[in-house]
Design a protein around this nucleic acid. Structure first.
Lengths: 169, 169
DNA sequence: TCGTCATATATCGATTCGATATAGGCATAT
DNA sequence: ATATGCCTATATCGAATCGATATATGACGA
């Protein structure tokens, strides 16, 4: 996933490692560590997906290669029905603008269905937990409730994105 | 953190591995993998924090030891000012009922301050990003906005928890 | 000129992940 | 009865990621 995210950012323009880390963090869902970032850059270099060139000071500017663009595309267009982690979806979403409009809706719609299922099970579990709860379980219940509310908010947000996408298409 | 979470669940009653995984997942913020869980149980056994006993079928019921209770307490009471990951906070919150009331508020209050800082930076970054955004960056912007909204919701939720805690105290 | 601080790359050991193997128990269809 | 398929349950592997830390550079002000 990190490789995917790095390639996505480099599609736009060359960046050095530290800058990639900052840009990723600014997306809001992932504060990637150095211990992840620099090994990932080595991986991508070894695969020929990116190339480093000296920049000012200690900086190394990384640039995506033609091969790298191919890797990015195949990651971007991976089957939405296949298993995808939360982070996987978020990275894909960040670069969804690179897909044609109807494929975008497919990706978001699939995610929406997954979240709906999650929400239903969360609701059942919560009802069960509430009925069995002692007072000292208050915070565990609160966590479950908050998690449910977050999922609901995620779904509503996705609906908004899909609606916006349809209205421009 | 996983060790902490496992001990917290075992404080209540003995459970076997699979059940620990389910209980953790039901908290909503962590679907722990087997590859994390079973090594964690080995670690805790080796430290003498938990003990396994045969249960029905292949099941092994794990029970927390006196030493384990000590480990749990020291993890629970760790300085709230010290660096804490998101997941670290959530685990601590799940078992916050084991702390005296005023310490609970300290923990939540510290988290609240961290989230406030996050929110401010996120806001600045978003403003900056909006002004420089091209059309294809739409989804990146949407991610940032959603992340901000989530942080706002987290803060509001924390405020509710703190208020509830004060009202019972 | 000397600290000091933000920037930047790098590496270490430990944790966690995601996938997979294996096998027991239980319900249901043949 | 017994075969089949499906949850349950423990376990392990290699790879990705984390969190902490080391080190060096450049910019800026005391």
């Amino acid at each position: 996933m990190l490789d995917f995210a790095i390639l996505g950012l480099l599609m736009e323009r060359p960046r050095h490692g530290y800058e990639l880390r900052r840009a990723l963090g600014e997306l809001g869902f992932w504060k990637v560590s150095f211990g992840s970032l620099y090994p990932a850059l080595r991986r991508l270099e070894k695969r020929g997906a990116i190339e480093a060139s000296k920049a000012s000071g200690r900086r190394k500017a990384y640039e995506i290669t033609e091969a790298g663009r191919g890797v990015f595309d195949s990651l971007l267009q991976a089957d939405p029905e296949a298993t995808e982690t939360d982070r996987g979806f978020q990275v894909r979403l960040a670069f969804l603008g690179h897909l044609p409009s109807e494929r975008r809706i497919q990706v978001m719609d699939h995610r929406r269905r997954e979240l709906s299922v999650q929400l239903k099970t969360a609701r059942d579990i919560l009802i069960e937990a509430r009925s069995a709860a002692k007072n000292e379980d208050r915070y565990r219940i609160a966590l479950m409730e908050h998690s449910m509310q977050s999922t609901e908010a995620d779904i509503a947000w996705l609906d908004g994105l899909v609606a916006a996408e349809r209205s421009v298409a």
